Simulated scan of single mutants.
Amino acid sequence: MVTLNLILIWLSFYLFYLTSKKAQIARSLPIEKWMHNHAPIAKVIGTVLLFLSLSVSISLWGVGSGSLFFFIILMTLGSLVTIISPLRVLNYVSISAISILSFVLEIILP
């Protein structure tokens, strides 16, 4: 469940990143270009995902700890997105592999 929450936070912040006019969308997937061109829809989807991940955090750890976890992870992943995305260091294959490995380890090691 933590991995799902991290993916939701990353995806929501990445949607907000794609709506920026300064974002470099030169070599990307068609869905990224579409989200960049349709910024209001991407912002609504990003907001819904942020509130969903906040509610998941609160349901897992309570109001205080869940909110703190959410905002710390939001700041961390937001910094990583703004630093690493323009460099094109990570692609969707590596992010998917890291997410699957994290999910498997979360299930195996409770």
Rank of each mutant, 00 (worst) to 15 (best):
I31L: 13
V44E: 12
L74K: 02
L54E: 00
R27P: 06
A39G: 11
G62S: 12
S12W: 01
F69M: 10
I95S: 13
V44L: 14
V44T: 07
W61M: 04
L15P: 00
I100V: 04
M35E: 05
F13K: 01
F103V: 13
K21L: 09
H36E: 13
F51P: 03
S28M: 07
F69W: 08
V89L: 15
K33C: 11
Q24W: 02
F13G: 00
I84K: 15
V63L: 12
G64T: 14
W10E: 01
I108A: 14
Y14P: 00
S59D: 15
A97K: 10
L90W: 03
S59I: 01
L15K: 01
W34H: 12
L49E: 01
A97F: 15
I25Y: 06
P30F: 14
I31W: 10
V89G: 03
K22E: 09
M1A: 10
F70I: 01
I25H: 05
S94P: 08
A26M: 15
A23E: 03
S67Y: 03
L50K: 02
V89H: 09
I31S: 03
S67W: 07
L77C: 06
F13D: 00
V2E: 14
V81K: 00
K43I: 09
S28I: 06
L50C: 13
L101N: 08
A97G: 07
F16W: 02
L105R: 04
K33M: 11
I41M: 04
I108C: 13
E106F: 09
L77K: 07
S65C: 12
V81E: 02
H36L: 11
V93R: 13
V48Q: 12
L90Q: 10
L101S: 15
W34K: 05
L54K: 01
I107W: 13
L18E: 01
F103I: 12
I72S: 12
V93C: 06
L60E: 12
S99R: 04
N37R: 11
E32P: 03
I107D: 14
L15D: 00
L8E: 01
I100Q: 04
S53D: 02
I83M: 11
V81S: 08
G62W: 05
I84F: 04
I98D: 09
I31G: 07
V2Y: 14
F51H: 03
I95L: 15
G62L: 06
F103W: 08
Y92F: 07
A26G: 09
L54H: 00
L18H: 05
L87P: 05
L6V: 11
S85A: 15
I41C: 03
S53N: 03
S55R: 08
L77H: 08
S85F: 03
H38P: 10
S59C: 06
L29D: 09
N91A: 13
I25D: 02
Y92P: 04
S55Q: 05
F51T: 10
A39Y: 02
F71H: 06
G64A: 08
I58V: 09
I98N: 11
S65K: 10
T19F: 04
Q24H: 03
W10C: 00
K22A: 09
L15I: 08
V44I: 13
I98L: 13
K21D: 08
F13Y: 02
Y17T: 14
M35A: 11
S53E: 05
L49Q: 01
T82L: 07
L50W: 02
L18D: 07
I25R: 03
P30E: 13
I7G: 05
V89F: 15
L8G: 00
T76L: 14
Y14R: 10
E106H: 12
T3M: 06
